[in-house]
Amino acid sequence: MALVQDKPGVLNRVASMFRRRGFNISSLAVGHSETQGLSRMTFVVEGDEYTVEQVTKQLYKLIDVVKVSDISKEDVVLRELALIKVRTTPSTRPEVLQLVEIFRSNVVDVSPDSVIIEVTGDEDKVDSLLRILKPFGVREVMRTGRVGLMRGMVKSLAMDDPGRASKPG
């Protein structure tokens, strides 16, 4: 997770760095943070400890990046939102609605031959719902990617190792 200055091109800078250094991001979500002028980015990076350390340092090298923290080992709340358009017929609609109920998700649009379901949760929950809806005919899916926050009062987002820590030059 990173706090970045809300400046034109900052998303481009971050995305460009990932591409250039050959890091794989499986999801990226951006939005305003609690502080004006700062945005919060959550990205999911596949890789071992070395990769995560390199990603962190390369992110810090970007002038617009204020803080970076690896929250994968922290006590965190991670959520993803997905909109799923499923084909329905008069005969399958009740069953689909029942699944919506079970997954504590919502129907946000109903058409004669489809419904749009809004589901929020961790990645597993969204994956499970998608799997279970598949036989009905999933027409379109839009997922936000994971966003996250640490539980409770956060002590510091900075890295701890004194030799490897802090903002670069």
């Binding site: 070395y50 030799g163 490897r164 820590a165």
Partner: peptide, 12 residues
């Protein structure tokens, strides 16, 4: 002076 150089190529 650049933390990103630490451990990039050679483990320190």
């Amino acid at each position: 002076i650049d933390p990103a150089e630490i451990d990039k190529n050679v483990r320190t």
